[in-house]
Amino acid sequence: MTAPPEPVGTVHVVDPSPLNWLFITWNTMEEPIRIDEAGRVVYSLAESSEWLDERTLELQLRRGVRFQDGEHFTAHNIKQNFDEMQRWAAPHPPGTWLNFPAPESTAEVVDDHTLRFSFPGPDGLAIGKFRGFHIASSAFWNGKDAPGFGYKKFGSGEGHW
């Protein structure tokens, strides 16, 4: 297998979009899925998904992924990020439509690379909502100086995911 080319060069970008905060997040963090050039959902930190029944969604997670600080990515990261997100009434700036109903929605670690979500009812938009479910390292959340999504700056995650 040929090694990928080494990154070369610097580009200077001017991006007036009010979504720039989100573009910075999407270029540096990842989610279970991402959106490709054509706008289609493709798996990212997840490799596959399956509805086990109408309320239970299981994700198989990608192996061999590391956070930029060297931490190995596992299902425990997904659960931690999900549990943090569920603490807030309106974490996403676009609105509560991106929420997973709390407290009924839960995430359960099956093994290091399998995670099972339980929702109060069938949610056909769940996979798409994962686009707003950014997965950060443990260091992003743990410790008094950890930034969290708005935790250090505002003391709250409301409207800051």
């Binding site: 905060w21 270029n27 540096t28 956070f67 060297g70 990515f73 997965i135 390292s137 708005g150």
Partner: peptide
């Protein structure tokens, strides 16, 4: 959104 720089993600 991310309020300060750091190696927080898995992204490119």
């Amino acid at each position: 959104m991310i309020d300060e720089p750091g190696p927080w993600g898995t992204g490119p």
